[in-house]
Each structure stands twice: as C-alpha cells, then as structure tokens.
C-alpha cells in the first residue's frame, strides 16, 4: 500500500494531538511514540511550535510539554477545517 508523506502542517498537528491525548501534559518520549517521529526531528518541530506560541515547556529543564490556549484553539479550528476537507474527499 502506498504511504503518503505527511505535510509539515500535518506533523505539527499530530504532535499537538499527541500532547492533548496525554491530558495536555506529555513527555517527549510519549509524543515521539504517538506522533511517530524520531527524537531530533521532534525537537525541531517542538521548537517551531514553541516559537509560534502553540505549545509551551513546563519549565526550562523539564521535558513536559503542554498546549497553550492558542494551541488548543488552533487544534479545534484545524479539526473543523479537516472535517470540511474530508467532505470533499481530501486530506489536509
């Protein structure tokens, strides 16, 4: 079966979903497993998500991440648009 390469946006949303699935407080190892990403790539994505204000690290030396209010809002909105796209048989 042909596997589709995930877009950058899709990977970031998968990371955010992984964090939300762990009661909005997830360790890097859990995110790696849920979002299906290697450690180095995950760190890059997490840095970008932090820069955009969508996720936040609990403290500087912690590996616990959680979604910000902006991140939660973005994820909810993304899911609405995703459902809309699926109506037309498309994936975002």
């Amino acid at each position: 079966m042909k596997k589709h390469r995930r877009s950058r946006l899709r990977v970031m949303v998968d990371i955010m979903r992984a964090i939300r699935a762990c009661s909005n407080e997830a360790r890097i190892t859990w995110i790696m497993r849920d979002a299906n990403l290697p450690y180095d790539r995950l760190l890059n994505y997490l840095a970008e998500l932090e820069r955009r204000g969508l996720v936040i690290r609990k403290s500087d030396n912690s590996d616990l991440y959680h979604l910000t209010k902006k991140g939660m809002k973005f994820l909810i909105e993304f899911e609405k648009v995703e459902r809309f796209a699926r109506v037309f048989g498309l994936e975002l």
Binding site: S7, V81, F84, A85
Partner: peptide
C-alpha cells in the same frame, strides 16, 4: 469561509475554487 480557511492551511487550489 471554511473553504478559504482550508486553502490557507493547505494551499490547495481546489479550496480556492470552492
């Protein structure tokens, strides 16, 4: 409105048409 949002997120021309 939702088609425009989908276009902004995915950059797929289909949503711009819709």
């Amino acid at each position: 409105h939702y088609a425009l949002k989908a276009y902004k997120l995915s950059k797929r021309r289909f949503f711009l048409f819709i």
